[in-house]
Amino acid sequence: MPAYWLNLCFKVKQVKKTGEVLVFAEQEDGEVHPVTYELLGKGSELAAKLGVELTSVFLGCGISEKAVELIQYGADKVYLYDSPSLETFDATRYTTNIVELVKETKPEIFLIGATRIGRSLAPRIAAALRTGLTADCVDLNLDKDGNLIQIRPAFSGNIMAQVKTKTRPQMATVRYKVMKANKKVPGRKGTVIKKKVKVVKDTGTKILGKIKSDEVNLAEAEVIVSGGRGLKKPEDFALLKELAAALGGVVGSSRPLVDAGWIGKEHQVGFSGHTVKPRVYIACGISGAPQHLFGMRDSDVIIAINKDPSAPIFNVADYAVIGDLYEILPLMVKQIQKIRSRRKTR
């Protein structure tokens, strides 16, 4: 048996609040994912309560300028790993370097964005460290002993669960757009610590191509007009597009229409699609199945248009319109255009 298998031990360690709060700073193509700033916001709150430092680990290539920004958003220290070998995300390379850092700095809490990169990376790190990891958290608190209370949806969003971790670091991935970022403070003091990068030459994977997607980005959208099986044919998405265009938003969809090939999968909202949190979500002809609600129930304002007064979508809506989307949408577009032109002439 390899010695590796004997190292395993999940013993509970003594709780000492000397460890820092560590945040993974995620970048893709040199651009920092905004969830990073939100994690720094929540992280600085937790660090202050525990009386420890907020630190951030940042991996990539040619990113030292961006590292300073992490300090402006609240990090006291940034561990910078800058190397061509880290230019694109590679789970093995990232894990190797981060695991070594965690063993050295022994953070109390380690937060990672619940993005696809984060959810691919965090479990590898947690397994390597033999520590607990809570996925897709929507809230984080501390109990009276300073232990992390992690709150996350489970059972496709039907229930919320509070999770605690007995090992250290307490690791969690955190959903985008649920935590508040700190205001950027130019000139805020902190240190960037250049770390020596361990280059894993052969990871068993090779990136053959990387294509920047020009598809809609639902996660970032402020207004989403979504259609469901209330639509009768693919062309009718035009109705939703018009409304979305009038509001400066994008079009979303429930799953059946994506599965039927009426619209691309990048438009799908829900458990097996995107989780969104726009300022306004307009659901047109969507019944409100739990898997759909999972992806949009935290939107700021939800407007539902449905023929059926008993449709479950109305249970999560702020404004309910009982009616035929084919009659209401064109009228809404007209009204909105009227309002816009009135404002312009003023």
Binding site: F10, R130, T131, G132, L133, T134, I149, P153, A154, G157, N158, I159, M160, A161, Q162, V163, K164, T165, K166, T167, R297, D298, I302, A304, F314, N315, V316, A317, D318, Y319, A320, V321, I322
Partner: peptide, 22 residues
């Protein structure tokens, strides 16, 4: 021997929106 433990479960809070019917 699991490092994480579910301490409590409850209903999602945002399910309690009360729609205004137009």
């Amino acid at each position: 021997n699991s490092p994480t433990r579910v301490a409590k479960v409850y209903a999602p809070l945002s399910s309690k929106r009360k729609a205004v019917f137009i």
